[in-house]
Design a protein around this nucleic acid. Structure first.
Length: 583
RNA sequence: GCGGCGGUCGUCUAGCCUGGACUAGGACGCCGGCCUGCCAAGCCGGAGGUCCCGGGUUCAAAUCCCGGCCGCCGCACCA
């Protein structure tokens, strides 16, 4: 990217001028953290999403399905997920300089003790009692307030019914897991994907499309059997030799640069703790590659224990280099274990386990205690229930030992006679067991991916701007021009070709104003990969020129062949293979 | 939230310090006409601006002052 050291200004100017994106609610002065997508931005976003579907869902359709769940959830969902607790920070402001601090961190630092579980009032009290002051200018601190990054709302007319906007898609998949698993006939692995909008009430969003308060996420929860990890990732071998760069947390601490590993190496060296986690990282890597980001401009950065979210056992940020901000995260790849399903089981009381049948059922012989209640009832009357309960909770071994040694069983002060307690051998057939699946989660921020895609497509050539998108994600796929502005024969022919392409399902730009050069330039600027120009020869032999956005080279193609030629071109065919060279 | 800098046609910008001839100028883009046989060509014409918003100072404010909003940078924040 020579001479293009900071593309941000150029991209945002272009984005506004040509209609990719701009700040929302501009006519009211704007509100930070919200962006509109314009006509081309929307088309591009749709293609980026379609590509993701292709890489993550369609190619794995045997295991991975897509769902859609609501944006608003009742508070209990995010209590279960831990977001109400962990997404909230106690914050205190300095009354003198106005700086804000994490109240719990300040107190822990000053007192050297943990304040876990302290309420806001407790924290305020501690700060007052110990006269903890602002670490910058020693100013007095105000009351401790909570700041929660969840957007809060109310469901229905009842004030008690609090709802939250989802800050991630995952909880929708977890709460729907039971149904989806049933649909998928309860066989692991199961991937549940979702694409949708989320809200996070960021304290100070900035950096345009990079940090928004509302944005779109593409996310998958891939559920696996933790005891059978070898079969959890049936596609692993296909990608075992793909190389990509990783910077483990230890490497980061030692100040080491990210290094290249094959997927297999990374998993064998325990750099990545799980095969599936690694596999989806590779898919994420190839996905970003398909959007035009080279492998050298991307790596996976492991998060340290304190940098991780509360649910995560291991997390990698998939980072891409951009001109202004350096490495930015486009995706997070987390091993969430069984945290989420366990929590939802706890809060909802629903059984979210998957029954895992054994290959062959196992028969085990166990000893069981049988208590003859008719005998005990006569002796102990209303105390029978308690006594039976105690007996049945005792280890069978100690019961049989006591009975053998002393001929009775001692429960408190009671001697239970031998004939009331019998030990029997029972055969039990076990056909399988219930497991709580573990989860691997790749999660992409669409808006960041969109910005990154624009930056990597951006070129300047002879003072003109060209968006060299990979052909198959270009918002507009082809342009159709009559060579001259005012020649009705050319225009008629060009409009006919335009209609053919539209009917064939393509997104096409028709333009007949200005010189042909100007129109090529306009099309280049929004990244149209193919341009068809109708000229005077077209009227004679029904051929048109096909021009390549990136090389500006042209070939002649028969009109009848154009839809097929365009399809091939968008898939990456060489221009020279699609028509005859211009004479 | 704090500090610094900034906000002028669709876009980029001149003017602001030193208030008045600013009816806010230019370039690009856009629209119409002419011209034009393949890369932002030329000529003619045209549309387009609450000078971010609100208040104040002044005879007079794009310009000075205050508050707000928005943007960028740094800090803090980013489970």
């Amino acid at each position: 990217m020579d001479g293009l050291s900071d593309l941000y200004d150029k991209i945002s100017e272009l984005a506004k001028r040509r209609g990719f994106f701009w700040p929302s609610y501009e006519i009211y002065g704007g509100i930070s953290g919200f962006y509109d997508l314009g006509p081309y931005g929307t088309l591009l976003k749709n293609r980026i999403i379609e590509k993701w579907r292709e890489y993550f869902i369609r190619r794995h359709q045997e295991y991975v399905v897509e769902i859609e769940s609501p944006i608003v959830a009742p508070s209990v969902v995010f209590e279960a997920s831990g977001h109400v607790e962990h997404f909230t920070d106690p914050i205190v402001s300095c009354l003198k300089c106005g700086r804000r601090f994490r109240a719990d961190h300040l107190v822990e630092e000053a007192l050297g003790t943990s304040v876990e579980g302290y309420s806001l009032e407790d924290l305020s009290k501690v700060i007052r009692e110990h006269n903890i002051r602002c670490p910058f200018d020693n100013g007095e601190l105000g009351e401790v307030k909570s700041f929660n990054l969840l957007f809060k709302t109310q469901i229905g007319p009842y004030e008690g019914d609090i709802g939250y906007l989802r800050p991630e898609l995952a909880q929708g998949m977890f709460t729907a897991f039971k149904r989806v698993a049933e649909t998928m006939r309860n066989k692991l692995p199961i991937g549940i994907a979702q694409i949708g909008r989320v809200g996070r009430n960021e304290i100070s969003p900035r950096q345009a499309m990079i940090r928004l308060r509302e944005f779109t996420i593409m996310e998958m929860e891939y559920f696996i059997d933790p005891e059978d990890k070898d079969n959890a990732c049936p596609f692993f071998e296909e990608k075992a030799n793909v190389k990509f760069r990783i910077q483990s947390y230890n490497m980061k601490l030692r100040g080491e640069e990210p290094q290249w590993f094959t997927l297999e190496e990374a998993v064998e060296n325990k750099l990545i703790i799980d095969k599936c986690l690694g596999y989806w990282m590779v898919i994420g890597y190839e996905y970003m590659g398909s959007l035009g980001v080279p492998g050298s401009s991307m790596f996976f950065q492991e998060k340290g224990p304190h940098e991780r979210a509360h649910y995560s056992k291991q997390t990698f940020d998939q980072v891409v280099r951009v001109s202004r901000w350096g490495w930015i995260e486009v995706a997070g790849h987390s091993y969430r274990g069984d945290y989420d399903l366990s929590r939802h089981m706890l809060y909802s009381k629903a059984d979210l386990t998957v029954f895992k049948p054994y290959k062959e059922s196992i028969t085990i012989k166990t000893k069981k205690v049988r208590v003859d209640k008719s005998i005990l009832g006569k002796i102990y009357k209303e105390k029978v229930y308690d006594i039976v309960n105690i007996i049945q909770n005792m280890p069978v071994e100690s019961i049989s030992e006591q009975l053998e040694k002393q001929g009775y069983l001692k429960i408190g002060d009671h001697h239970i006679p031998l004939e009331a307690v019998k030990i029997e051998e029972v055969e039990e057939k076990i056909t399988g067991k219930k497991i709580i699946p573990h989860v691997v989660e790749p999660s992409f921020g669409v808006d960041r991916v969109l910005y990154v895609t624009l930056e990597y497509a951006y070129r300047e050539k002879e003072g003109r701007v060209i968006l060299s998108f990979p052909r198959d994600i270009a918002p507009i796929q082809a342009a159709v021009f009559p060579l001259l502005e005012n020649d009705w024969d050319l225009i008629r022919e060009a409009r006919a070709l335009y209609k053919i392409l539209v009917d064939e399902g393509f997104q096409v730009l028709y333009d007949d104003t200005g010189s042909i050069g100007r129109r090529y330039a306009r099309a280049d600027e929004i990244g149209v990969p193919a341009a068809f120009t109708v000229d005077y020869r077209t009227l004679e032999d029904k051929t048109v020129t096909l021009r390549d956005r990136d090389t500006w080279k042209q070939v002649r193609v028969k009109i009848d062949n154009i839809p097929q030629a365009l399809r091939l071109f968008l898939k990456g065919a060489r221009l020279e293979d699609l028509g005859s060279p211009l004479s």
